[in-house]
């Protein structure tokens, strides 16, 4: 994962991770109550611009990610577009009924998912696990056992990925892949999962014991190797985020691109 990220020395990496986490997750609440298609269109556009400037992904990755995310997001709204309720019919054949209302709702849903994916991606690509969990402990008072538990678990991801490759190879060698059909497929998935889980559980238990052997649980009051604090960057971040959200709302009232200001009407 660490090879995909380009430069960690940008503004968004230097923001207090707890602040970033809380603000970014609270955007969910904001856009959950947006029923104006114009606002959603402008918001997704502005977040796309923000994503372009701050994402930690290298160029090739981010282009493909955006494209695929957009397509998938619109797919996820396909039921609403094809089978939603509405009275102004655009297209009708047997069960398929596309109406203006359902189309507007579908597009809004798709764009909303798209925006959340972008926001999530901004967070995921500019946040390193270690500072994130340190900040959760220091600013949000998350119990240390959970925070270090997460960190220890994160350390195992590359090991698990490598293990997954090995198991896949081993199953191939044993001829597991030669069997065809749904039953064989289920059998194979179960084997994969059980072997992965058995190894991971054992690894987790051993790691927990090793951590306790280093007197982890006995500490009442601990010091921190990294102290995550506040800086001017946090102010910039809040301003940038507020501006992005505000611009979406402002543009939608001054430059409404569609007539659908409330998709829930009718």
């Amino acid at each position: 994962m660490d090879t995909v990220l380009t430069n960690t020395n940008t503004l968004f990496f230097k923001i207090n991770p707890s602040l970033k986490f809380i603000l970014i997750s609270s955007l969910f609440i904001v856009y959950l109550f947006v029923q104006n298609l114009n606002t959603m269109i402008w918001a997704s556009l502005f977040f796309l611009i923000l994503y372009y400037f701050v994402s930690g992904l290298s160029g090739k990755w981010s282009f493909w990610f955006v494209l695929i995310t957009l397509i998938v997001s619109l797919f996820s709204a396909s039921a609403m577009i094809l089978f939603g309720k509405g009275s102004h019919i655009i297209y009708h054949q047997s069960l398929i009924l596309i109406t203006q209302e359902s189309l507007a709702r579908g597009v809004l849903l798709g764009l909303r998912t798209f925006t959340f994916s972008l926001i999530g991606m901004i967070f995921a690509t500019t946040t390193l696990p270690v500072p994130f969990f340190y900040s959760l402990m220091q600013q949000l008072k998350v119990p240390v056992r959970y925070a270090y538990g997460c960190l220890a678990a994160f350390r195992m991801i590359p090991i698990m990925a490598e293990e997954f490759m090995h198991i896949r190879q081993a199953m191939r060698v044993r001829g597991m892949t030669r069997q065809k059909g749904v039953k064989a497929f289920c059998e194979r998935m179960t084997r994969y999962t059980i072997t992965m889980l058995a190894q991971s559980i054992r690894r987790a238990q051993r790691t927990a014991i090793a951590m306790e052997a280093k007197r982890f649980s006995m500490t009442e009051k601990r010091t921190y190797f990294y102290e995550i604090g506040w800086s001017r960057n946090d102010v910039y971040f809040v301003i940038i985020l507020l501006l992005t959200v505000a611009l979406g709302f402002v543009f939608s009232s001054y430059f409404p691109l569609t007539p659908y200001t409330n998709v829930l009407d009718q």
Partner: peptide, 18 residues
Amino acid sequence: NLSDILVTIVIALVFGLV
């Protein structure tokens, strides 16, 4: 205890990966 927490999170990660 720590072992329960770690095992639970790791299980979640395995499924997260899946």
